[in-house]
Design a protein around this nucleic acid. Sequence first.
DNA 1: GCCGTTTTCGGCCCGACTGTTTTCAGTCG
Length: 601
Amino acid sequence: MISNKEIARILRNVAVCYELTEENPFKIIAYNKAADEIENLNIEAYDLWREGKLKKVPGVGPSIHSHLEEIFKKGKSKHFEEVFSKVPASIFPILELQGVGPKKAYKLVTELHLTNPETAVDDLKKAADEGKIAPLKTFGETSQKDILEAIGFYKRRKGSMQRMPLPYAYKTAQTLMDYLKEIPEVEKIETTGSLRRMVSTIGDIDIAVATRNPEKVVKHFVNYSGKLKLIEQGPSGASIILNNGKQVDLRVCLPQTFGSMLQYFTGSKNHNIHLREYALKKGLSLSEYGIKPLKKLQSFKDPKLQRYNRKLGLYEFQEEKDFYEALGMEWITPELREDRGEIIASINHKLPRLVTIKDIKGDLQIHSSYNLEPSHDLGKNSMEEIAQRAKELDYEYVAYTDHNPGISNHSESKINSIMKRRFNYIEQLKESIKSVRILNMLEVDIVGNGTLSLPNQSFDFVDAVLVGIHSSFEMTRDEMTKRIIKGLSHPKAKILAHPTSRIINQRDPVDADWEKIFKFCRQQGKAVEINAHPNRLDLDSTLIIEGKKIGVKFSLGTDSHDTETMGFMHYGVTFARKGWLTRGDILNCMDYNKLLEWLHR
DNA sequence: GCCGTTTTCGGCCCGACTGTTTTCAGTCG
């Protein structure tokens, strides 16, 4: 089956060919838009097509649909093959290079005779090393040097360069922002881009600054001691590469336009495109500088919302909230700005009241140091210390969810006795700890064939269990789906822990039919976890949205192995918010009695 | 090539920076 990413790549390549063959420019935009839409789908385009729903994807009209249909049926499209045949195949690898687009790639490939797509990048490097790029028309010494650098960057990226996990990006940004704030000219400062939207992994760090002295702020920024390399610098911003290889983009503006600047650079790209399309219908043109009426002066409902800049002919916004309100919309929290229906919801004033960290009444995945000779790692802190920390976090309750005792090195009766001992210990603890309510739970492996690695009798010694996959990640979708559903079928299995079992930058999510699993969970009263650990962040927001549509309950857990990481709950909340969840969708927003009732159902 | 609660035809998001140029094309976000 062809992946969405692969389809998007093909559509973008078609757009590149059209650009080189000077097709209608809007046709090129159309192909790129269709590629964006398909790449951002949270369901396989192939599956949509089989269900006859592919036509409903925005940007996929009759023409693109028919070509894709041909690809799904025959593996290729005659029309696309023809289009590709008009352009040398070597341009596509070259296009991967920073700063090289279709026009430059075409020129390089034809003039330097780079005929082999497999070796095109290496051949290009050789040509650059020999000084053959600089003499080409519209190129020069600088371009040649830039291309060599881009090739170096491309090779490193192919190797180990990865997107940053959210907390790493957050910390890097904080350090840099502290540095920027050293000069008094920085009046306001915020992260923008994917970091402000709290996407699970971050490519570049984006920062916006409000200042009356842009020049000084930009200068201060490019003098940062952690800078490896300057990419570009201008009056309204600059970009640098840090010593750790990560790119940072800075944008500066006057305080009176900070609101529109923040809005613009927070994105996402698709959010902004659709916001602009909506504004345009109202005769308004949006930019990072404000809102410009296209024809005669439009008067906004509340004149206090903005100031009019006569010289530029636009309304300026100090606050982002006012920018959205001037368009007749509610302010949209950055987590939702992924173009998943938030614009319409905002126009209709129907944005959900999203869950916040204050709504969380307990943590539903924590590993203690209580030694039940588990199959996986123990936690570092005792049950008492965990309870103490839960109290500090102002929780009403906390769940101990240690891994089940190992089944390979223990007999069933031995496991039962370990579990009984643990049960008694926790019962005692409940007597001595009154500040926090305690849930006696366990995280149990779903082994390859779908059975749980805990003897049936041992289930008597817990309130409920989380079940999860910790081995045999490579299975077909059907097998994996059956395995997960079978694992969840035990009456005491109430929560599916870290559902896709992905580990960011290390392990891909498992392949399963989530629609089927979510439907099972809704019918059988099971919850799916949003694992707040920053290396997992699992489920991802796209799947949370799917689950919510089906009506599944969610459970937030930090998967902590020490009391320190219990503080990561806010990442879980962030993901719940990105998934449009409200209090009512989440188990740990219930009070203790309600939750216990739910678990014992 | 796509799209529509002002349109089934006539529009399509907006601006910054760089290098190679003498006013702009290409690329990026």
